[in-house]
Design a protein around this nucleic acid. Structure first.
Lengths: 189, 189
DNA sequence: TTTATAAGTGAATTATAATTCACTTATTTG
DNA sequence: CAAATAAGTGAATTATAATTCACTTATAAA
């Protein structure tokens, strides 16, 4: 018997990301994915039950690469330092993987997304919320509800990366520094 | 002869907004729109050339309601006050019109959007950028590039409104105050 | 080697949804 | 009121894209 080919899954995922960037989720077709991945359309159904499953699997994979793997291993640094590290790596990831991020964004707000996929980044969010809470305990972060603080960090990084990418502005250490300063001023006590 | 019926356009727009919220742009069909608007599918094509035109027209209408009309008439207030007024009205608009905002968001990042529609909010953005520039001149706003400052305001309001809506948190004057304070601390010199 | 099994194929099928059009109806205007 | 014109209808058509399946190939295991 023959075994499934990991390289094919990669090719399928890459094709999906590329095509979504080019034509969007709406006009993304299974046959286009197959052609781009250099396989037959039927083969897609050997690897995935259908379009939704394919997209959800890709999304879950990207979320784990784009969030969990960015959490720093070292957790004994000062809070501000830890938040800076996360800010910096998330911003860098989003600037370095624009097609992937575009896919994630479009998919996240589409009705194709499954509940399970939606929950994938929960662990990452929880980590940041814990940091904010510790910061409040140490009196270095504003004593405001996380529902008010978290959207600032998330909304800013999301929009900033999109904006810089759109205007073809390269991410420099200076920009990382400046934007973190803006963030920190926003949330610091 | 018979005249076109403005109320029908309204019904079509409302149906489109509702349905997009329920099933998303992907599964939004012309027949569903027609049924919901209580008209025949063919009638849609009397009012619009097709799906793209319908969606783009709706988007343009919503943008002008959701941005330009929110710009304050009075322009002689202090910069900080003006920014607060805009912050407050944009946040309120976004919390009060969640279906419309969801449509706008999904459509904006879809490939169906026309270049002209994309430019609709330019005037609004320019107004805010002018305010930021004046703030810098008065030394009350950080002397950073607008490419760094603007995404904070836009990203935060966008994400905050979505987050509060999702968690069914009502917008109180206290939240408006707190979130503006966060913003202002972020951008103030 | 052989063979059993599952991957791989892509034309054909099926499903879905956009759009058209021959016809009916309402309303304006002379 | 009658005629003209454009709105309004929805079944039929057309377009598009998901999915299937009878068949071919590759390869792991005997």
């Amino acid at each position: 018997m023959r075994l499934k080919d990991d390289a094919k899954v990669e090719a399928i995922f890459n094709a999906t990301i590329e095509l979504t960037g080019e034509v969007g989720l709406n006009r993304l077709t299974m046959s286009a994915i197959a052609t781009r991945a250099k396989i037959a359309s039927g083969t897609l159904y050997i690897y995935f039950n259908g379009k939704e499953q394919l997209l959800n699997n890709l999304y879950k994979r990207l979320i784990s690469e784009g969030t969990l793997s960015l959490l720093p291993a070292i957790t004994h640094l000062p809070i501000k330092q830890q938040i800076f590290n996360i800010w910096s790596s998330v911003l860098k990831f989003r600037m370095d993987n624009t097609s992937e991020v575009a896919f994630m964004h479009e998919f996240r707000y589409s009705p194709l997304i499954s509940d399970k996929a939606k929950e994938m980044d929960k662990e990452f969010v929880l980590h940041v919320l814990r940091l904010l809470n510790e910061g409040k305990k140490e009196l270095i972060v504003k004593d405001l509800d996380n529902d008010v603080l978290f959207p600032l960090l998330y909304g800013y990084v999301d929009n900033l990366a999109r904006h810089l990418t759109h205007k073809k502005i390269k991410l420099t250490p200076e920009i990382v520094r400046q934007t973190f300063q803006v963030c920190w001023d926003a949330i610091k006590a």
